[in-house]
């Protein structure tokens, strides 16, 4: 992977009225890197992408892509970026090929080059046999794939993918993730936003965690785990715990670094999951509680996010 920064965001701020949606976000993405912005809905991911893709003007700060400023040279930036918005931004009454030809012309393609790129995009989206069908007749997954293919027509240097797997079936999601990895192997730089931790974990070279408009942590998965010091996790699901059950007392047990209780689920962050599990189970048995399900987890993004924000990502 190359290390030269292709994108540099510096102290980006954006207000919507009295809401301070993005608060001084700074990061960089190296050429050939997949960088994921991970955060819950409303965290500021889409607003950050909006500023980086010239759609929104930052109230403060700036960003450069391949040396071009998004505020001062937006036209130059638009020529080298590809954008896949969260919405299915396609025309339902046009066929797949007509959509590709339209969007191709919008990014400056013409003639034989346009036809060739449209064919390539159809191939990538696995929609060659449906090229003449109206988009309105496509499934959600097919639309998502075409939505991505449109963003790649002009072979951008960096692709912005804003929650591209929202609302689709697992099979289509798998295809999209594989496509992103394949494109990256071909040298494409990707900025990927998601609120699905497993996607960010699988795809990303580096991850930025954004919450309440601020980038609260950044790095590779290992770096994030090290930075936050999160340990292994024991997730226990209890069988009908009594109403007066006070789980916080369990946080005092030896080896327990942190406890998160949600409904009938207890998540213990421990130094050694295998070593601490027997003692935990015995203690719970002593309290008259029955454990319905046991899960041991390696340190992961969910734990990092929980550690950083005190809440689960899906909240």
């Amino acid at each position: 992977m190359q290390t030269q920064p292709l994108l540099t965001a510096h102290n980006l701020h954006k207000h919507y009225g009295r809401v301070h949606a993005v608060r001084g976000v700074s990061f960089h993405i190296a050429a050939g890197e997949i960088y994921s912005l991970l955060g819950p809905n409303g965290a500021g991911k889409t607003t950050t992408i909006g500023m980086l893709t010239t759609l929104l003007r930052p109230d403060e700060g700036d960003a450069t892509i391949a040396g071009f400023s998004v505020t001062r040279q937006p036209q130059r930036v638009k020529e080298i970026i590809g954008v896949v918005p969260q919405e299915i931004a396609l025309y339902d009454d046009l066929s797949a090929r007509e959509n590709l030809r339209f969007w191709g012309r919008m990014v400056g393609l013409r003639g034989a080059d346009l036809a060739k790129r449209a064919d390539e995009a159809l191939e990538l989206a696995e929609l060659r046999d449906r090229a003449k069908d109206k988009v309105a007749t496509f499934s959600g997954g097919m639309k998502r794939r075409l939505n991505i293919a449109v963003g790649l027509l002009h072979r951008p240097r960096i692709l912005f993918l804003d929650e591209p797997t929202v609302g689709i079936d697992p099979q289509s999601r798998r295809r999209i993730l594989d496509t992103v990895k394949e494109l990256n192997r071909g040298g494409l730089t990707v900025l990927y936003t998601t609120h699905y931790m497993e996607e960010a974990q699988e795809l990303s070279h580096r991850i930025g965690i954004i919450d309440y408009g601020q980038l609260i942590a950044e790095g590779t998965l290992d770096e994030l785990i090290t930075q936050t010091g999160v340990g292994e996790r024991i997730v226990l699901t209890l069988e009908a715990p009594p109403a007066d059950f006070a789980p916080n007392d369990l946080a005092q047990m030896e080896g327990v670094q942190r406890l998160h209780a949600e409904g009938d689920t207890l998540t213990f962050e421990v130094d050694d999951a295998n070593g601490r599990l027997p003692a935990l189970l015995l203690h719970l048995q002593g309290l008259g509680l029955t454990v319905r399900r046991i899960e041991l987890q390696e340190p992961n993004l969910e734990a990092v996010f929980l550690h950083l924000t005190g809440r689960a990502l899906r909240e």
């Binding site: 010239t54 954008v83 025309y91 990014v107």
Partner: peptide, 10 residues
């Protein structure tokens, strides 16, 4: 979303 997408093209 097609208009915002148009606005991100050159």
């Amino acid at each position: 979303g097609t208009l915002p997408r148009l606005l991100t093209t050159p």
